[in-house]
Amino acid sequence: MSRFHEIKHRVATTFQRQVGNPLLRRLPNQPVLETTGRKSGVPRQTPVGGRRVGREFWIVSEFGEKSQYVRNIQADPRVRLRLEGQWHTGTAHLLPDDDPRARLKALPRLNSAAVRAIGTQLLTIRVDLDD
């Protein structure tokens, strides 16, 4: 990763962790992905942008395997997802062979634009919902 991308990643994740995520988690209609901390075992909640299609929920991570929630999924793919105020259980799958730029075209526009602008290592994630 270039120095520019490293700085971009550090600035974006610091902002998300300290400002964006705490605010977005409180919005009732904001999708929130809950993973289990790979070191702590504690639930970790991350606001995400994506779209439900049937029993699947699609996300594109802007920093791929550098994202903490992606690392948590690698350690334990069982997740919970808050959609429209209700929690659902499911299993997350990392899809490195999927075209994340094409996938973003089918996801909410505002979030997709932000992911394209900030992202350095896009990675598609599919959550198969149990219910």
Rank of each mutant, 00 (worst) to 15 (best):
R3E: 11
G37H: 08
G37N: 08
E6G: 09
V48M: 11
I125V: 15
Q16P: 01
I73P: 02
T35W: 11
A114D: 03
Q121V: 04
E56P: 01
R116T: 12
G50N: 07
Q86V: 10
G49C: 03
K105N: 12
V127I: 15
L107D: 02
R116G: 00
L27P: 01
V79L: 03
R101C: 05
P31W: 07
W87V: 01
Q121T: 13
A113F: 06
A106V: 01
Q45F: 08
R10Y: 02
R38T: 10
I7T: 14
A117E: 13
P28S: 04
N29H: 14
R17G: 02
M1Y: 09
H9T: 05
E84C: 05
L107C: 00
F15K: 07
L94Y: 06
T46E: 08
T124F: 07
I7W: 15
V79P: 00
T89P: 05
R101T: 05
A114T: 05
T35L: 08
R38W: 09
R17Q: 12
F63R: 09
P108R: 08
L83T: 01
G37D: 13
K8S: 09
E56S: 10
T36M: 13
G90I: 03
Q86K: 15
L95C: 11
F15E: 00
E34A: 10
N111K: 02
V60W: 13
P43T: 07
L104S: 01
G20S: 06
T89I: 03
R44I: 06
R55P: 03
G54C: 06
L95P: 02
R51F: 00
G54Y: 10
V11F: 11
V79I: 04
R71S: 00
S61F: 07
L122W: 02
E56A: 07
T14V: 03
Q30N: 05
H93R: 14
P108G: 04
E56T: 10
V60T: 11
R55N: 15
H88Y: 14
R44W: 09
Q68Y: 04
R3Y: 06
A117G: 13
A117F: 11
V79C: 01
R109F: 00
S40G: 05
F57G: 09
R80K: 09
F15A: 14
I7Y: 08
G37F: 07
R103I: 00
K105G: 02
N21K: 08
L122G: 07
R78E: 11
R101A: 12
V19Y: 11
E65P: 01
K39G: 12
P47W: 10
N29L: 14
